[in-house]
């Protein structure tokens, strides 16, 4: 069931268009990654969803809330750099956040204890936030976003600023969270998206370049690939150079590898037969020939650089 539909969402600042008429739908229970290089407009898009920036034009529609209801009550948000009142303790901030979301004093307290435990900072709960490390602040930020059991959890680059261990731990947390609620998070690391998400939206220069479920995208954009590596003797290198000057018709694109070439082909069987024959005929000293498929990374690179 659709939870959120976005249509024609646009934000222009004085001279630039940060987000240019994007549209997508988020279904309940899915984990969605907003993927793209830095400056693609991810943060601006996310801030419009949370209401922190007013869109220049376009619609954001949450399903299942009455007209005029505050959509902020459905959203839990963790900004890229969460900021806190440093004079509060972690526990105080959570209770404050919970009370602001309409929990009773008692609910806010039990929920805070529960979440402090869950994100693993229960032992620091009574310390001032001023003394927290970056990783602890990120966890506290996650806890405050979850305090009112939001229907949609929005996270802006949740792991970018963390060291490898903190990153692993937050990813594990997200893995368990996505079973409970709908998650939208932005990242510029494809690997994170692949690891956790059901759907991806790849943004580039304010537009959505590719969007859909990871499986669909993978199978739709999957192309066979041949990687060939050769020994670095004179004869073999010359042959490869000449061969690439007029590549056969089955080669769609190619790129250089260290000591070889990577070919994207259309008919993998023809390509295999033909290439092997040529290698034998010209007596090329091949060291490796691998047949595989384009990865999501290839697609990502293609989508963001094209």
């Amino acid at each position: 069931m659709a939870l959120l539909t976005v249509k024609g969402l646009t934000k222009s600042f004085e001279s630039t268009q940060a987000v240019n008429s994007i549209g997508f739908t988020i279904h309940e229970g899915r984990c969605v990654a907003l993927l793209g290089p830095n400056g693609a407009g991810k943060t601006t898009a996310i801030r419009m969803l949370t209401g922190l920036i007013a869109p220049t034009s376009g619609d954001i529609e949450f399903h299942g809330i009455g007209p005029g209801a505050d959509r902020r009550s459905l959203i839990g948000f963790l900004p890229q750099v969460p900021a806190f009142y440093n004079w509060m303790t972690g526990r105080e901030f959570l209770i404050y956040a919970g009370r602001l979301c309409g929990l009773s004093a008692k609910e806010a307290q039990t929920r805070s204890s529960e979440l402090l435990e869950r994100v693993g900072i229960a032992s620091a709960a009574k310390r001032r936030i001023a003394g927290y490390s970056g990783g602890m602040k990120q966890r506290l930020g996650l806890a405050q976003a979850l305090i009112h059991r939001p229907k949609l959890l929005i996270l802006d680059e949740p792991v970018s600023a963390l060291d490898p261990i903190g990153r692993r731990e937050v990813m594990e947390l997200l893995r368990s969270l996505k079973l409970e609620t709908t998650v939208l998070f932005s990242t510029h690391v494809l690997h994170d998206a692949e690891e956790l998400c059901d759907d991806v939206l790849i943004m580039r220069a304010g537009r959505i370049a590719v969007g859909g479920s990871i499986q669909d995208i993978r199978s739709e954009h999957r192309q066979p690939i041949l990687s060939l590596e050769i020994e670095q003797d004179e004869h073999s290198r010359k042959w490869l150079q000449n061969w690439l000057k007029t590549p056969p018709a089955y080669v769609k694109t190619y790129s250089a590898l260290s000591g070889g070439v990577r070919l994207v082909v259309d008919d993998v069987n023809a390509a295999r037969r033909n290439l092997l024959a040529e290698l034998v005929e010209s007596d090329v000293r091949m060291t490796k020939l691998e047949i595989g498929h384009t990865t999501l990374e290839d697609l990502f690179m293609k989508a963001v650089t094209e």
Binding site: T50, G51, I75, F77, P79, A83, F84, Y85, L100, C101
Partner: peptide, 13 residues
């Protein structure tokens, strides 16, 4: 400036 207003004002406040 510090961003705490963003933390608070994304809540139904």
């Amino acid at each position: 400036l510090s961003g705490t207003s963003a933390m608070i004002l994304v809540k139904p406040v």
